[in-house]
């Protein structure tokens, strides 16, 4: 088991840290969230999503004005798409969309670009901090779940996941399994076995 740190715990100087999960008090650094030490890296176990440029998000259209579409990302920051006259999407309240983070303005508003409508699927919400694990290194985890379940899966860094088609129930339970065991090693292999076992059961 790797070492789990809690808020206020000292972080050794040789640990690589994620800028959003520690603070420095003079010469020492301390954790601000539940974290795990993984091969000399500080990885958050709990915590909020801090948007970065280029990250994919999944959200729901909350308000449509003349030039601005407000999107609910289930996050404390407001998120908007600034419509351009060339945009051909007719946004309606309640539409599920996928988009990309362009920038965060003034620590208060996320500007989204490249929106795409997602239709006839299910929304699943997990803690945003678990998302990197659900994606996996070079997309391995989500690709694996997708290929076993034949579901189309779009993962938002904000913690919302869109699933459509295939064995959706199995896709949901596989994703929830990754979220619950995100801190454990050997997860890709474990999820593979889980999916194989479940599919075997249903085929019999």
């Amino acid at each position: 088991m790797n070492t789990i740190l809690i808020p206020g715990d000292l972080i050794e100087t040789d640990v690589a840290r994620n800028r959003n999960y520690y603070f420095t008090d003079g010469s020492n650094s301390y954790c601000t969230s539940m974290c795990i030490l993984n091969n000399g890296r500080l990885v958050p176990l709990e915590g909020l999503w801090y948007p970065n440029e280029g990250e994919t998000v999944v959200g729901v259209v909350k308000e449509v004005k003349n030039s601005i579409v407000e999107v609910d990302l289930s996050h404390f920051l407001r998120a908007i798409i600034i419509k351009s006259p060339r945009d051909r999407i007719a946004f309606r309240i309640g539409d599920i969309i996928e988009a990309s983070v362009k920038q965060v303005e003034d620590k208060k508003t996320i500007i989204l670009i490249f929106p795409r409508l997602l239709k006839n699927g299910q929304l699943l919400q997990v803690k945003a901090v678990k998302i990197p694990r659900i994606i996996g290194k070079n997309n391995t985890m989500v690709a694996q779940i997708s290929s076993f379940t034949k579901s189309n899966i779009v993962i938002g860094y904000n913690g919302l996941i869109y699933i459509r088609g295939g064995d959706m129930a199995l896709a949901v339970s596989a994703i929830l399994k990754v979220a619950a065991e995100a801190h454990k090693p050997g997860l890709t292999e474990g999820v593979k076995k889980f999916l194989e076992r479940e599919l075997e059961v249903t085929e019999k």
């Binding site: 809690i6 808020p7 999960y21 301390y30 601000t32 539940m34 709990e46 915590g47 909020l48």
Partner: peptide, 11 residues
């Protein structure tokens, strides 16, 4: 609060 991932300087 720690369980919620709200950042804190101490518990």
């Amino acid at each position: 609060l720690a369980n919620a991932g709200i950042p804190m300087r101490d518990l």
